[in-house]
Design a protein around this nucleic acid. Structure first.
Lengths: 194, 194
DNA sequence: ACAAACTTTCAGAAGATTCTGAAAGCCTCA
DNA sequence: TGAGGCTTTCAGAATCTTCTGAAAGTTTGT
């Protein structure tokens, strides 16, 4: 029947359009995840299509060069956000996105902590050490500010550690618990005494 | 006494060097905070020196142009990370960094949620709505993936809301509680039964 | 060993972001 | 009203990031 065939085509193109919109929306979050726009888009594409895709399909869909696709996909594999999939009977390499969004968060946290948080903590400790012996009131206050910042970054670092150590399920659980906890503290603050 | 004068100078320059190192370290985190390098550096400078500084002092210390300093400081004020300070008897404008690191985190979260999370949620909901009527198994699965992502981003959004609503003190408290909670879940997972 | 099929690399090009500096704008005080 | 002191603006310059495409590299099958 012609009508069904037409419908199928319409359905297909509607889905493709939705995928494109998702890819675009996700691409705008690239900065927030700390990856390039194209990395975010390629990840979004693989996530939303749900099935493994090869380099050519990604190139075509995202309108990017082969070189760019290659480097982008490799970077995503390095980040642990997608994985290589081999299909028997096909020499091409396929890539599939992690399907669990919480596992995805874990991978993101792990990489960013490694790249950003750890080096910062090292630098702050170095500064603190080399500043420790300077005498005088201004130096004291400088150290106080440095220590406040160290405490802050340290706290964030510990949270990141804990979250990274969790499985996807635990992470989801902890997140929901955190929402509840925050509600509790909020009620506490608004409600009554110490 | 000459010796004391010498010492004072040495102390002064050691402190300046430490400040510079701090500024540099903080500048490298710019990407993580979602601000430009110069914004991060200017903020770091104002934070670590502890006292209000005027545009000329920031320009000189950071070796940037007047125009850049002006725009950077204004942006920091917009983000709520620093505030304008007027000194009586001085026509220059001074800027002082928020002193409480937790309040700083709150300001950061508020801005980034507004700029990044909210638009993403709107876009995802739109896609979901426009995709709702598409029939067929592939569309079903597409919606399932979209919903998983919506649930995830929604959870993050709720946490951000709660954190933004908290005062600096509550935020610190909640963070420490979270570390404890994570420890608890961790022990739970490793330890025993459901 | 060779060829076909596919992937990776990287120098230079393109594009995006950030910065400069000079001119315009805005107060304040005389 | 106007001169001085300070701040803001913004077009073009400089810089940094990302992308392209062709050549080199790799793997698989015969």
């Amino acid at each position: 029947m012609r009508r069904i065939s037409n419908d199928s085509e319409a359905v297909r193109s509607a889905l493709l359009a939705a995928e494109d919109r998702f890819v675009q929306a996700w691409g705008q979050m690239a900065g927030a995840w700390g990856v390039s726009r194209t990395m975010a888009e390629a990840h979004a594409l693989l996530y939303i299509v749900g099935e493994p895709r090869n380099t050519d399909e990604v190139m075509e869909r995202l309108r990017i060069s082969r070189g760019n696709a290659s480097m982008t996909l490799r970077a995503l594999v390095d980040w642990g956000l997608i994985s290589r999939v081999h299909k028997r009977g096909d020499r091409k390499e396929y890539f599939a996105a992690e399907r669990d969004v919480w596992a995805m968060l874990g991978a993101l946290l792990r990489e960013r902590k490694k790249r950003e948080l750890n080096p910062l903590l090292v630098a702050l400790h170095e500064i603190r050490d080399e500043t420790g012996a300077i005498p005088g009131e201004p130096a004291e206050q400088h150290r106080a500010r440095l220590d406040a910042m160290l405490g802050f970054i340290g706290a964030i670092d510990r949270i990141a550690d804990r979250m990274i150590a969790m499985s996807a399920g635990e992470l989801r659980e902890a997140t929901h618990a955190l929402t509840a906890l925050a509600d509790g503290l909020d009620a506490h603050a608004k409600g009554g005494a110490s």
